[in-house]
Amino acid sequence: MLRVYPFFLAAAWVTIQLSIYTTVLGLICGSLGAAARLSRSRILRFVGAAYVSLFRGTPALIQLFILYFGGPQIGIQLDAFEAGVIGLGVNIGAYMTETIRGAIVAVDRGQSEAARTLGLSRSETMRKVILPQAARLMIRPLGVNINALIKGTALVAAISVVELTYTAQRYIGSTYKPFEMFLLAGVIYMVIIYVTGLAISWLDRRARIS
């Protein structure tokens, strides 16, 4: 049992890195997606809606496979880790698009009307009035997205990234201690999720005070 710990710890670090990069990319895609969905341009709105529908309507695993195995055919050469981050990030971005858009829409319509009657422009209203309030509203639901994303990083085991699930699978299949190996990986996942949850609650509380 003892000799597997270093492998699991190294794998946990890979999972953490994957989670961080994917979150950042997801937030970027989600913000752009939400901006497109709420844009005045019909074309952009359509692009945003298509992004959400296509990426939420098909399995993340298939999206990952298209990028990693199919990418070279259209001139995209990525190593497995890069493909994992991009594939998962763009996928979770579609979910985050809806979260961010939902928070913006939920901010009272009256707020925007009030700001506009004061003479603020559309973009000023968005930046100074709507977004600061929506940002507070979206912290918790984005936390739910990130929670799903952390568990979702396990998918890259299918393209042989040596992260937690890949490592656990190797030892589940070879040690005759399947439950111990499952628990070991499981506990690490739960610690990562728990710490992330604490950070999100902290952010949420801070946002509420200010």
């Binding site: 085991a157 699978q169 589940i172 005759y176 399947p178 499952f182 996942y189």
Partner: peptide
């Protein structure tokens, strides 16, 4: 609690590769 906190893929590995060992 265990199944909510861990990835589905990990659970599939446990059930498929793990149960055979017991």
């Amino acid at each position: 609690w265990l199944f909510m906190g861990t990835p589905l893929l990990l659970q599939l590995f446990l059930i498929y590769f793990g149960l055979i060992q017991i």
